[in-house]
Structures are given as C-alpha cells and as structure tokens.
Design a protein around this nucleic acid. Structure first.
Lengths: 212, 212
DNA sequence: CACTGTGAACCCGTTCACAGCA
DNA sequence: TGCTGTGAACGGGTTCACAGTG
C-alpha cells in the first residue's frame, strides 16, 4: 500500500468506526433501495461531524459521488482494504488472565482476520490447557513460537511488572506490533507499532468528572 | 470541588498516568532520600513531555517548589483528590461475559475506591452465581438495584445490540456515569458522563500501520 | 438540487523559552 | 544554580463554507 503523508492517527481510529457502521448496514441489508449513504447519515449514526468524515475519507481517495453519496458496499470494501482487514493476522496473547481470556473469546476478531495462534503464561496450572480452542503454552516457548509461526501481533495482558520484559522478548523474536494492556510505559524500538489500552485511565477520568 | 474552566480531557487522562507513576514510587519507597521528583523525571518515566506535565499540574494549583521539584507523597495525595480517588464509588457491571469477568477480577479497582456491587446478565445459567465474591443478578432487577444502592457508575460489557437499551435503563434509574465497552454509539442525556472503550479500534488501527 | 471534496479559518492542545523563585 | 510556572509561538486537527459535479 502507498505511503501517504501525515494522516492523523485519530483519523485511522475513525475509519474503524465508519467500517463497523457500514458493516452493520451491509449485514442487515435486504432492501436494495438502501445501498447509498451520505456523510451526514454516517455522522448521525456515529456522532462524528460530517465534514470530518468526508475529510477522513478524502485522505485515501474519492470514494463518493457528488450529489449522491457513497456506495455502501464499495466504501465498506475500500475501508476493509485500507485498514488491512482483508488480510489474515497472526496474533499471540501473553498472559492467560481474565483479560487474556476475554480477548480469546471475543468473536469479532476472527471475522476481522485476527487469528489467535497461541496464549502464553508462566503459571504451571494454566499451561497445557485450552481456551476456546487455543492452547496455553509455557511463556518460555514464546520466542521460538513467534519465529516459527511468523507472528505479527503480540497482545500483552501480563502485569505491569513483567510487561517490558515480555515485550522485549517479543521484539527480539521479530514481532511487528504490540497491543499493550499493562498500565506501564513501554520502551521499544521505533519500528515496532505500539498501541496502549489503559482501562484504569478510563475509570479514573470518570471519577474526576463525577467529583466536579 | 471547584469548577475550573476548560481543562482538556486528555489532561485528566494524563493525571491518571502521573498518579500511577507516583503510586509506584510511594509503594516502593524505603529510602527517605528519594522523596522529591522533578517534572523531567516523571517525563522520563511516562514518556510525556516535561512542560506538558508542569502545565497539566498547573491547572490545579502550584504543587511544586521552584528549583526543587515536587514532593512525591504530597503530589500523590493531591492527584488522588483531584481524580476523586479518595472517595468510594459504587459500580455495577452489565454483562457477565468474559470482559465483565475480567473487570470484576481486576485487583486494581478496589485499591482505587471502585466497589463492584453487582453484575447483571440475562443468561439464566449465570444468574445466581458469583464471580470473585460478587453476585450475578437477573438484569431485570438492575433498575431497582441502582436506585436502592445508589449506584454511581455503570459498566456496559453487553453486546452492541443491547447496549443502548441497557444504558437507557441505567439512566432512568439515576446512574451518573457509564463506561461503555460495546462498540456502538450511545445517545444519552448530556448530564450523564459517558466514556467509550473500543477494543476493536485498537486492533484495526494496528493492522492499518502494519499494512503500510 | 444534493452531496462530495477541499481551501481557509478557526480552535485548541503542545512545545518553547524564559521569568520567577527557592 | 536548578526547576517550576506560564505567556507566547507553534502546529495540527476540526469546522466552515463553498466550489465542483453527477
């Protein structure tokens, strides 16, 4: 795919929202008369400003027809390509705790091309068991596994204490992206894509606003 | 607490990061010679620009000493107050799926004052059971429960389809904040604090960058 | 006429740079 | 001197407004 200049990260996040919005329509669609959508209709469904939507889409091409709108199926397919969801992505999860389990069981992933190849933990009681048809392996075998299976994405659901160490192993074995759920600041080489999800922040900012 | 004008939401999120950073030091602290911290030290630990940190803190007061830095314990306590973490918050979770379970089991919540009072689900197989000492109730009883126990925060880990409906019930019963994990755009009265956490977005933006 | 695509204006968070102070 | 607090400059994402077009 082409390298385009300075597309805001938040635009990419919104593409994912548009994608799901269209997906919902495509899956519900029976009537043929509902195959076009306008930016203001998407705006209404997502709560995002319609000019914002048009600008976001315009980063990637001219998908719409002036005076008409966007062809739902076409835009859906384009977004899937842009987001890389037309490919398969091999994923491993480090940490077989509750969050790790929740992610393994999430049905939406397979549909979007994310294949969870293995879960890794250091707890002897977990190792060897299965979660939703995925084996839990000893974390000692993670590096070999990543290399052998050419894993692209590693998900960290381990404790904050061990997150950096486990991340280092992932990087050493050639992983290309890490989704970090541990509430800690990871330091990684710049070529590794790193996204952080911090659930505590969401709770703690809620209570700030409740305290006002 | 005083109402202050236009503090960016993202500043609140960062306060939560500073808070955890200080917490880590306070808990590890044995040596008395390590009781002051500079904004550049926090910057190093969190990856956030030091001017940003000083500006964020300055929204709420002058906590530092010029030429010296910030007293760790003092700043820790101030942040706790600002974030409302010195109070207890009654929480319920709607949806006893894997994510709901993961949240119930997360140890960090109790420490920060979040008390999970109940879990609600519509699955007869789950109702009546316990998750980590918290009962799972029939979702039909949720509204009564919220009113009776004066619940402040509702967490939505139900499906996207039912999220709006369950949220409406929460609002009707007097809940004041909702943390929504369902990948859908909720429409709520403006006085309800709403935060969304969308895990799919994080995965899908990763694959965008991997596809470049 | 309706709706997209987009330059320009706007707004606001970030970073700089330095005055203020221990 | 060292580090905070902060006005000012900067940068970039958002919104406006309208030209372009089916």
């Amino acid at each position: 795919m082409l390298k385009r200049k300075s597309i805001p990260h938040i635009t990419i996040n919104r593409l994912s929202i548009y994608y799901r919005c269209l997906e919902k329509i495509v899956e519900a669609e029976n009537k043929k008369d509902y195959y076009i959508i306008s930016s203001s209709k998407i705006a209404e469904m997502t709560g995002i400003n319609s000019a914002q939507i048009r600008k976001d889409l315009a980063y990637f091409g001219q998908f719409g027809k002036r005076g008409t709108g966007y062809y739902i199926k076409n835009l859906h397919i384009e977004l899937r390509k842009i987001l890389g969801l037309d490919k398969r992505w091999s994923v491993i999860i480090a940490g077989a705790g509750n969050l790790g389990q929740a992610l393994v069981n999430y049905k939406g992933f397979k549909k979007r091309g994310f294949i969870i190849k293995g879960i890794f933990d250091n707890n002897p009681l977990s190792i060897g068991k299965k979660l939703d048809h995925v084996y839990i392996y000893d974390i000692e075998e993670m590096e070999k596994f990543i290399r052998k299976k050419n894993i692209m994405i590693g998900v960290l659901t381990v404790s904050a204490n061990s997150a950096q160490e486990v991340a280092n192993k992932m990087v050493k074995s050639g992983i290309r992206a890490i989704l970090n759920f541990a509430p800690t600041h990871l330091i990684l080489p710049p070529e590794i894509k790193l996204h952080n999800v911090d659930l505590s922040i969401e709770f703690e900012s809620l209570t700030y606003y409740l305290s006002l």
